[in-house]
Simulated scan of single mutants.
Amino acid sequence: MLHHDHLANYARALLLRRLRAQGRDVEHSRLWQVNAADLKARSLIRFEPRYICEKCNNGDGRGKDPNYRGRVSRMYPKSFSMNPQELLQVSRGSCWDTAASRIWRSARHEHRRRRLAISWWVQSIIEAEATC
């Protein structure tokens, strides 16, 4: 399965949401196609898409599921994705919750920084296109 950083999904959804708020949602596909590669160039995603096994790919979803093992909230946001090396750590360990929690704690500040940078990036795209 192709595993990717869900910050890219977050960026695409944010671009659509902001364009829609301005009544410009028809521009979404074109703007995304033109600008999506910029996410990597600006280091806004943690890792390149990579083929991994289905079990590892699904290992990431447990932390995003608010109902996993009786949880009442997500361990981490939907926009966070473990990289392939981190997925190996949680899939091989005996305690998924402990390993995943450690990974999220070490990544959360950087994740928040990237989400904020994506917000600015999306706004710059919209403003630049409005002036053309």
Rank of each mutant, 00 (worst) to 15 (best):
A99L: 11
P84D: 04
V122W: 00
E54K: 10
W96G: 04
T98Y: 12
K78G: 14
W120G: 09
K78L: 15
E110Q: 03
I125D: 00
R74A: 11
F80A: 14
S43F: 14
N67F: 15
L16M: 05
S119V: 06
R17M: 06
F47Y: 02
S81N: 10
Y76R: 05
N83K: 10
W104C: 07
A21F: 11
C56W: 06
Q123N: 08
A128T: 08
C132K: 11
A13N: 05
H111I: 03
L44Q: 10
L15K: 00
A117D: 04
M75N: 00
A107M: 11
E27V: 07
I118K: 01
M1E: 08
S94W: 11
L16Y: 06
E110A: 02
I118D: 00
L39R: 08
G59W: 02
E48A: 11
K64C: 06
I125T: 00
L14W: 02
N9R: 02
A36F: 15
C95L: 13
R105K: 09
Y68I: 07
W121V: 01
S91T: 14
R20P: 05
R18T: 09
I125A: 00
M75T: 02
S124C: 03
R20I: 04
K40N: 12
N9S: 05
H109Y: 10
M1C: 11
E86W: 05
